[in-house]
């Protein structure tokens, strides 16, 4: 009942405003000196602190129905998801698969070499499965059985 109608004291509003101005000064001051890698995290941390102050006090989420806080939190989380999952791609673009030590010409030459070697193989050398042997072998008795066994085991290795 009282949740929606909490009157935030003027003192609190002015205090929050003061903190916001101070934080703005701090982030402006820090921007003038070189913080190296910390520059971005620090600036974003200060901005987030300011945003939290605005949300909690000016927008009164601190005194409000929790469902509104949940709503807002869900929104922020999904912004995070959007940024994070997009960066999973853009920050690692080309990580594997589409880069190679070899040049395109080298890969092509290698493929041609393999193709050439395969074409040079005789039908006998290509036999692997039992079915290959049944058609090819004129001698059904001993040959088929032995070859079939060999084919089976080599297929497993």
């Amino acid at each position: 009942m009282s949740q929606g109608h909490h009157i935030i004291p003027q003192r609190v509003l002015l205090g929050v405003f003061g903190s916001l101005i101070v934080l703005t000064g701090v982030t402006y001051g820090l921007a003038q000196i070189n913080l190296g890698v910390l520059e971005v995290p620090v600036a974003l941390a200060i901005a987030s602190t300011k945003a939290v102050l605005v949300v909690m006090y000016f927008m009164a989420l601190k005194y409000d129905n929790p469902v509104n806080t949940l709503t807002f939190a869900v929104g922020v989380i999904f912004v995070g998801i959007f940024i994070t999952f997009t960066l999973f791609d853009t920050a690692f673009r080309g990580d594997i698969g589409n880069v190679s030590e070899q040049t395109v010409r080298e890969i092509q030459r290698e493929e041609e070499e393999l193709q050439r070697r395969q074409e040079a193989l005789t039908p006998e050398q290509l036999r692997v499965a039992p079915a290959d042997f049944e058609n090819a072998e004129p001698d059904p008795e001993a040959g088929t059985g032995a070859d079939a066994d060999r084919g089976g085991s080599s297929g497993g290795s």
Binding site: G4, D64, N65, V67, N68, T71, F72, V74, G75, V76, F78, V79, F82, I83, T86, L87, T90
Partner: peptide, 25 residues
């Protein structure tokens, strides 16, 4: 009305999120 407004506000946040993503990338 208030819950409706908060829902509207998160649609605004997600609208800007697109540009924040472009910026981050």
């Amino acid at each position: 009305a208030k819950l409706g407004m908060w829902l509207f506000l998160i649609t605004e946040i997600l609208l800007f999120a697109g540009m924040f993503v472009a910026y981050a990338v």
